[in-house]
Computed example of a mutant assay.
Amino acid sequence: MIYLDYAASTPMSEEALAVYVESAKKYFGNASSLHDIGTAANELLTICRKQIAQLVSGEEKGIYFTSGGTEANVLAIRSLAYAHRHKGKHIITSSVEHASVHAVCAQLEQEGFTVTYVPVDRFGQVDMKALERALTEETILVSIQHANSEIGTIQPLKQIGELLKKKQIVFHSDCVQTFGKIPIDVKQFHLDSISISSHKIYGPKGVGAVYMNPRVRWHMSLPNTTHEGGFRPGTVNVPGIASFTTAALEAENKRNTVQQHMNELRRYFVEQITQKQLPITVFEHPTDQLPQIVGCLVHGFEGQYVMLHCNRHGIAISTGSACQVGKQAPSKTMIAIGKEEDEAKQFIRLSFGVRTTKNDVETVVSVLEQLQKERMST
């Protein structure tokens, strides 16, 4: 089967898998235990913490490991909101965030916080003027994703960070789709907190991390938590974290080569559908685009039908974020960029990975072309 859903999840790399197996054998101890086996596990954890921190230009003591990107978003946002509520109860996020961010913001609204969802332009990029207008003396936290998981638009984090730093407002970003793909510098972007995940970069599922600026206050989500400095309860997944770190280092080493390949695949896809004059609209920002995520409208068909048609032909694509699968509502990103509901339901997402080839692209274009021909003949 041709797999074109890398934005949802990736297969583990051979190196990450080997490290997981070896770590599970040798470092099975609880990293909080005081005996030698526990100490060995903790020492490995310390190395991983340092290496992950270096990849985002952060500090070792700012890394807290989690069960993945969703938990990282939830814990980061809740812990920051409650730590700073003495200053105000206003939070700002965007209309195109991941479902986990919208969910925790909705929960905080029920708990007495006020949330503003700033709009985006037709490319899916945050309206900076709207963001600045939304800031008040009560604003304590802004959470803006680094790149959209459905269309791959990259947000101007540095510009946002500079604005928020002047106003001394805490800045969090969901960097799950960008970590290991494009540079993330928490200091240059003035980020106080970010969320990252393992299974988006060829590491194991069930592992992620939050980077929290050590100089920024955060509130313990569950009282008397001892693991991860009180940030997250539960025994730390040392083998998973070692494997995640391996995958992250591997992604960083290959980043330039891989991204060049992603750009080539994207250009080739656009060239192919243009040459064949297929009624498909590809969404992309002119300059700030994550190339491996290709969001499209296949005019005349609902996205679910296109996805099932591709699946019958041995191609795996999606109709948006995997966290929204099964919901009948149209893509929130499509609605946010101004599409009507019926048009938004025509959305599909292709996402490329290291194993994707030009032949794979040709095959999916051929299948999409066949779909159009079938429609014309009926």
Rank of each mutant, 00 (worst) to 15 (best):
A242W: 03
H199L: 13
S173Q: 04
I144W: 00
N42V: 00
L75G: 02
I144E: 01
K200E: 06
V186N: 03
Q324I: 09
I201Q: 01
Q260S: 15
S100N: 00
A344L: 05
E369S: 14
P156I: 10
V120G: 02
I140C: 04
R375W: 04
N237I: 10
R217T: 11
A53P: 00
G62H: 05
T139G: 07
A72W: 06
I91W: 00
S94A: 14
Q177M: 15
V115N: 01
K50I: 02
G180K: 09
F171V: 01
G124H: 07
N30E: 07
A134K: 09
S32D: 09
K87F: 06
C296R: 03
V120I: 07
P214R: 07
E162P: 08
M212C: 06
G161Y: 07
L368A: 13
E340C: 10
I337S: 10
K254I: 08
S243K: 05
C175I: 08
T287K: 14
V325H: 09
G161T: 11
S57W: 01
Y202W: 13
T153A: 14
S221C: 12
M212E: 00
I273E: 12
S331F: 04
H190D: 13
N359S: 15
N263K: 15
G206D: 05
H309T: 05
E162L: 14
E15A: 13
S79W: 04
H146D: 01
T274P: 03
I293Q: 04
K25Q: 03
I335M: 11
T136V: 03
